[in-house]
Amino acid sequence: MNHDELDAELDSFGDALASATRVTPGNALRPEDIAVGGAKPSEDVARYALTLGDDALILAQRLSHWISRAPELEEDIALGNIALDVLGHARSFLTYAGLAWDKTEDDLAYWREEDDFTSLWIVEQPNGHFGVTIIRQLIVSVFQHLLYSKLTESADETLAAICAKAVKEVDYHRDHAIQWTIRLGLGTEESAAKMRHALEILWPYVDEMFQDLELHRKLDGIAVLPSSLREAWDKEINAVLADSGLEIPKTGQAMANGRGGEHSEHLGFILAEMQVLARKHPGASW
């Protein structure tokens, strides 16, 4: 049976069911559209897009590991959706950045060395147990939501367009993280203890997210100064933690410099796994 026959046979099962299984691709900006129709970014804009893309790529790589391992099947699907969204953001940012250097998203993902990556340490942190992943999601998605919201007004039209789609998705990721933080924070003694522990091990990587770089200052009107997001981020996180019976831990801050290519020890392993197959076959198409 070919696919047209299959579709016809499936369509014969009635309208009510057909309407509940209607499938449309939607009309969103895709990496392919950016590759073909996108304007070439300046060197600085490309470097900025690369930082956003690297964060998303490494986070997606981490999140994708959950699929088939989540606490409940419904959560396999939820984390899968989030990982797919984030990977989509990574592909858009990397595709756009690559236009400046005649490189594809895959050139940038698979053929750069560890110190060429600009990801933040928070996204490199291991998944740990479900609570650790949720706190990492809370920290990052609240940050990304604020950042992408601002970037929808960027003077760079492509960045603004990518973020217009991404911000809606990240809003959902943020909500997902908040719902789980509340439930695990207030659920049982055990879950509350696990959440406190998660906060303690991840909090040292918070400040790095808000470090302003020379690059951000140069791109006035295009990039967002990370430090400008701190107040709103603190306010929102404090509110969520208060609602969850949790508080900000008294930990120090790590001297992290992911943006400068100095990474946590985890990134090497992440890249080894991600790049191994592609690098075995230079020049291959898949």
Binding site: L57, I77, L87, G88, R91, A278
Partner: peptide, 27 residues
């Protein structure tokens, strides 16, 4: 799922992730 983290292109990674996620849905 064993190959999601090693998929050789980002497009293939997206497709594979969507597929494995669909399987959870079908279950």
């Amino acid at each position: 799922a064993n190959w999601i983290t090693r998929a050789p292109s980002l497009k293939r990674k997206s497709i594979l992730m969507a597929k494995v996620q669909d399987e959870a849905g079908h279950g």
